[in-house]
């Protein structure tokens, strides 16, 4: 059964990767493994930073208020109203303690699972006020994947099997991050197609994004200079939404195309920055995770090769490869005629 499943997984991975990957070269496994080790430790340091930096505002959650507890923190309902504040403070203490354990003992699976549970509890509490926001989901999902790191991954002299397992787990964490964008992209595509065929305003129309911006700014009584300008100039805002949909929907393919890790990560960071400026929607933790897992990706080539990156683009890459095949290569231009 494992052999059959890994065979079909390999086929799926090959399909997602598109053209055969460029050989990694000698010493690549060790180099990549060492970088992945550092990045995983950086992730747990980030969780600890999150616990410490958010502690003052989180402590305010212990004040009496109306809760709609999500399932991971439903146990807080067992406490009488008077004792709930103390229970919430205990939960916050647990989050700090488990994230510290994760940062200190990331090599231990028990510590990583504890960090995952602490983070899950805290994020659930933050989203238990009647509306679920999504800016903190990504660290939880990444922590879930990293709980699977193989035994011995943190050792400098880890055996080859542990090194391969570490890189596969790291790649799965990358895929997890990109999967969330792909789901969002396909949500917009299916919603957009339904709107298109039912004669409503849709994302592929020139004023589609202007409508999204206007509704958001009106809804939250927010002000945004770039947002207001884009509402008044649909020719400028119109292409942004289909562009963002492509960027999001195609993200999962990029997990399997290392040539695109850095540029795609940068584009997704830019996407969040634009959302922040235009729509006043902030996903700062996602920006950090994109920097960690993609700008510093252990699988990305040392230097950005833009021809390879263009050829690896989902959908458009095939077109670029055709164009590139028709043009003489620079090497052929300088080679003397035989």
């Amino acid at each position: 059964m494992p052999a059959a499943s890994s065979f079909s997984l390999r086929r799926l991975a090959r399909w997602l990767a598109g053209d055969p990957a460029v050989p990694a070269g000698p010493g690549a496994l060790d180099r990549r493994f060492l970088r992945a080790q550092v990045l995983v430790r950086a992730f747990y340091a980030f969780v600890l930073y999150l616990a410490v930096v958010e502690l003052p505002s989180s402590a305010g959650l212990a004040q009496p208020r109306r809760w709609a507890f999500l399932w991971p923190v439903a146990w807080l309902d067992l406490f009488p109203a008077g004792a709930q504040g103390a229970a919430i403070l205990a939960l916050l203490g647990l989050f700090v303690a488990t994230s510290l354990a994760g940062a200190l003992f990331a090599g231990s699976r028990a510590a990583r699972i504890a960090a995952l549970l602490g983070l899950l509890e805290w994020v659930a509490l933050r989203n238990s006020e009647g509306k679920i926001g999504h800016s903190l989901h990504l660290p939880v999902l990444v922590a879930l994947v990293l709980a699977f790191l193989p035994r011995g991954w943190a050792r400098d002299d880890a055996p080859r099997g542990a090194r391969l397992g570490t890189l596969q787990t790291f790649a799965a964490a990358q895929a997890m991050i990109l999967l969330t964008y792909t789901m969002s992209g396909f949500g917009k595509i299916s919603g957009g197609l339904w709107e298109l065929f039912s004669g409503r305003a849709h994302p592929f129309h020139l004023d589609g994004f202007a409508r999204v911006i206007a509704a958001r700014l009106l809804q939250t009584h927010s002000e945004s200079g770039p947002g207001a300008w884009l509402i008044l100039h649909p020719w400028a805002s119109g292409p942004l939404l289909p562009g963002a949909i492509y960027l999001q929907a195609a993200s999962l393919w990029v997990a399997f195309r290392p040539a695109l890790h850095r540029p795609w990560g940068a584009c997704l960071m830019l996407f969040h920055l634009a959302n922040s400026l235009i729509l006043t929607i902030h996903f700062p933790h996602s920006v950090f995770l994109l920097a960690l897992f993609f700008l510093a990706s252990p699988f990305a080539p040392a230097r950005l090769e833009w021809r390879a990156a263009l050829a690896a683009l989902p959908l458009w890459g095939a077109l670029w490869r055709r164009i590139a095949a028709r043009r003489p290569s620079p090497a052929a231009e300088v080679a003397p005629a035989a």
Binding site: Y181, S184, G187, A201, H202, A214
Partner: peptide, 10 residues
Amino acid sequence: ASWFLFSLVP
């Protein structure tokens, strides 16, 4: 999450 954020144009 489904991540269906801003899936519809108002």
